[in-house]
Design a binder for these strands. Structure first.
Lengths: 108, 108
DNA sequence: CCGATGCTTAGCCTGCACGCTAAATTCTCC
DNA sequence: GGAGAATTTAGCGTGCAGGCTAAGCATCGG
């Protein structure tokens, strides 16, 4: 099977493809994008409660969104008394920028 | 409800939020990302058959992926005899770059 | 015009994403 | 240590994304 047929993406190491998968999946839901945006705008960290308050959703629903973001590496948390403080990991978003870069250096 | 609570994203016009929605959803599936990458690498256009050949999937499955990409505005097609030639719309990917930009110009 | 080729449409099946409520957990404060 | 706040975990229901096969539609070659 030719390289052309297998496709360019296969040249990326598997770990990185998994990372893309996690990050793009995480970004696919509007609530999760909103969490990231708000978190970013608020200076990078918020408690779970503050995040949950943004939505009409039941709290556990938001908890799950947060977990998706966290397992994609876009968020981390620290315990602070009975609060959980989540903070954004902006570096992880670089992955998206990396991916987009393929479309700039387009062959002509 | 405060602006802060509603969240920054709401300031974007609705049309643009819908566009984000379509584009991020389209990018959420690895097959669709692969289609875009390959299409880009191959110079921007390929027939439906060439695209379908990249995958083990049954052809109709690929057809649907293509349609998702197209309705997100990431692809367009032209008929050419009995072939359908799809070409990438790289400008549409700018939306993603736009979205990411929020995380650069972070406050302060 | 007829069969082959290229591709989509129609329609079915299955699993999982994402919503919910109720219960558990962990910490705080009196 | 017990009430109460903050948050997660458990577990359920439903819709839809994404896989498939079979059928339909153009178009081309002979």
């Amino acid at each position: 099977m030719s390289d052309m047929k297998r496709g360019i993406a296969k040249r990326e190491p598997k770990a990185k493809r998994d990372a893309y998968e996690a990050v793009f999946t995480a970004l696919a839901h509007p609530a999760r994008r909103q969490i990231l945006l708000t978190l970013n705008f608020e200076g990078g960290s918020m408690t779970a409660g503050e995040i949950a308050d943004m939505f009409e959703h039941a709290w556990p629903t938001t908890t799950r969104h947060i977990q998706v973001l966290e397992s994609a590496g876009l968020l981390h948390h620290a315990r602070e008394g009975r609060n959980r403080v989540y903070h954004i990991d902006r570096r992880r978003l670089e992955l998206v920028r990396d991916w987009l870069a393929w479309f700039l250096k387009d062959p002509h």
